[in-house]
Design a binder for these strands. Structure first.
Lengths: 348, 348
DNA sequence: CTGAAAGCGCTAACAC
DNA sequence: GTGTTAGCGCTTTCAG
């Protein structure tokens, strides 16, 4: 650990004014070559650019945002989603913030308190200084959370709220349809004996995925024996434990569809333990397409849920709401079946 | 997708001035009840607080930061670390930003260009408006990257730069020592036949971990047969493939230490395929303690690298540098052996 | 095309 | 204790 000190004092930061003086023009002209180059004579612009270069000038983000009044400080409200999910949300939100010419600021916001405890919550959020909120699942599902958020008086957008009929803005996917399509994909591959590992019963997304699976099977005229419908908890271990007895039984499925990737990875582990090769002996499909899906081997065929894009849209909706513009109040984003190495045609 | 529009125009946002008027005091008084309550008479403060409440006033972060001049916009420079690593860095940086009373802004910064391409890089970073940079590994290892960064004229701090003798600030851990201690831990558990799966040869951290392993074995007077030293690539699959032949051979190790968690998880998979139970038949240890370590089952015994804290420290160093303060120019953070379920005493 | 003036919302410095 | 005056660095008028 080196402990040198640096002699110089604070780095002098060039401002618009400095550039203007050096170039012999006004601040406005400098501002224009930065933001609307077309409105400045080429010659003048050149002088200004030289000054900018010479002074190593960089516009001050804060001052800009304050002056144009289009900047929102957004808080990310979450309690317990996986860090893979959360990091996707953050990337999406950050990208959206960067892409809009008027920058938005993102501040993460760990939410440990019970959202029902209105006073504690409002005071924490107040203090944080955020001006708008993105609410990650499963917080959005809680009806009392919605009340608290509304009491707060801040614009907010929920991601995957579950119950979308309550008027507040949200971004979601069609879990049921996605699960249905993945099931259909498995059916198209020739699988008939397909088991499903469900997520926690109290999460709406989880229930909908289960419904989608059942519906596809029913439409195909296939029965779903009780043994092929297992309860999991969205964790790797629960997926492994739900799958193991299934795979060791005499009448085992040729494919397992897990309601999220963590559980699907657990199914992979169960298959290894059962001496089954994937996808040769067993096809495995997941849901979400978090990084784990490509970390494991074989990589997982899964339903891609565009988490980052959902966060980007959330930022957009927040904007709409904050500035009282007219426009969409919510968004439904498409999912996609991603075929990787964990599924194969079933050669009965 | 509902498409309602909202009638109201932009939400009116109360400012200090509004509060001051309503409370019949000056702006400064309001500012004081917010930032230095002790300096305001209790009675006055009460009036002000009521006005704040009534107006649902929240201080404007941007204005505050601009006015006190202590806010830095920090860019996160990265190319290809895992998203689990990166999300840790982001959390740490965000936390540091929030905790300092003078807020810092974090903006992620995907770095796709060759860092050697000075012009492209500088122009991208210029445009982004960041005022300081946190550089994630392995970018910091590249000597040409350092040159580019210095040419940029912005304060920057590298995380795990590898070569720390070049004068620029950095935050690091002692990879060699950590690997040595983990190896010792395995030895203490009674293991003698320990295999090591190394990471990419061109990464300094990886080479140091390998050295640490070898050193501990040497000190213990134990030979390290060539077969027990395998080359991996920091990926799950490479860990699995490196371990499989090892575990299937007649003379297999009783413990495998992988240079990162992804590879250790791959070793777990190899063990399952080889019909070995962990930790009963085989102990497995990883390095990093990313979320994958607790996702898999059995959960991984690993070396905890305090990634988030490293990022926090990086923010601190950036501050020191930006404001030309005296103080530490770099930091060495401690690692910790985390015992979980994947290791056990070897009962030879 | 370019510039001067005013102000974004807040805090620092100095009065009273 | 409290108010007044500046001014952070930029953009938005509105003149020229």
């Amino acid at each position: 650990m080196s402990t040198r000190t640096r002699p110089e004092t604070r780095r002098p930061v060039a401002t618009l004014k400095d550039v203007a003086e050096r170039a012999g023009v006004s601040q406005m002209t400098v501002s224009r070559v930065l933001n609307a180059p077309a409105k400045v004579r080429k010659q003048t612009a050149e002088k200004v650019r030289e000054a900018i270069e010479a002074l190593n000038f960089r516009p001050n983000y804060l001052a800009k945002s304050l002056a144009d009044g289009r900047s929102i400080l957004i808080g990310l409200l979450y309690n317990n989603p996986s860090d893979q999910y959360l990091s996707q949300v953050m990337f999406g939100a950050l990208r959206a913030c960067r892409e809009r010419s008027h920058h938005l600021l993102v501040q993460d916001f760990l939410f440990e308190t019970d959202l029902g405890d209105t006073d504690a919550v409002t005071s924490i959020i107040r203090q944080s200084g955020v001006q708008a909120l993105i609410v990650c699942p499963p917080i959005g599902e809680d009806p009392s959370a919605k009340e608290t958020l509304e009491k707060l008086g801040l614009p907010f957008v929920r991601i995957a709220p579950g119950r979308e009929t309550d008027g507040a803005p949200y971004v979601e996917i069609d879990d049921r349809d996605a699960a249905k399509r993945m099931t259909q994909h498995l059916l198209d591959l020739g699988h008939r004996d397909i088991a499903f590992i469900a997520g926690p019963e109290d999460q709406v997304s989880s229930r909908r995925r289960t419904e989608g699976f059942k519906e596809a099977m029913t439409v195909a005229g296939l029965p779903v024996p009780d043994e092929f419908l297992r309860q999991g908890a969205y964790t790797y271990r629960s997926g492994m434990e739900a799958a193991l007895p299934l795979l060791q039984s005499a009448k085992r499925p040729s494919a397992v569809f897990a309601a999220n990737d963590d559980m699907a990875a657990g199914v992979l582990a169960a298959a290894m333990q059962a001496g089954l090769s994937v996808p040769g002996d067993l096809s495995v499909a997941g849901f979400d397409d978090v990084s784990l899906a490509t970390t494991v081997w074989p990589s997982l065929t899964t339903v891609r849920q565009p988490i980052a894009e959902m966060a980007e849209r959330a930022v957009g909706l927040l904007e709409t709401d904050t500035f009282g513009q007219e426009g969409e109040r919510s968004a439904l984003l498409p999912t996609e079946i991603i075929e990787r190495e964990s599924t194969a045609r079933f050669e009965g």
